[in-house]
Amino acid sequence: MLNIKCPYCGDRSQKEFAYGGDGTITRPKLNQEISDEEWDNFVYLRKSPRGKHIELWHHIAGCRQWFKVERDTTTHEIFRTFKPEE
């Protein structure tokens, strides 16, 4: 069970959080002309890197803030956690 430092609340057990997927994805702007391929890349295609990965987590049983976590997917080491705007 991971120990995750919520940037708003501090160290908490993984039990309080929900995983939210790849944190590097940017949603296309509203009303933007976009090809099927670009849209599919945004909706479906994700890298599954071995090693460092920036991901989203949601402090679902806490402050309910979404934030980013830089984590090693093989060792589960967490290098840093940060607010989305950082």
Partner: peptide
Amino acid sequence: VLSHLEYYLQIVWP
């Protein structure tokens, strides 16, 4: 739905 709304407000359209 609540998580969904929070996601868009906090991450996509802050």
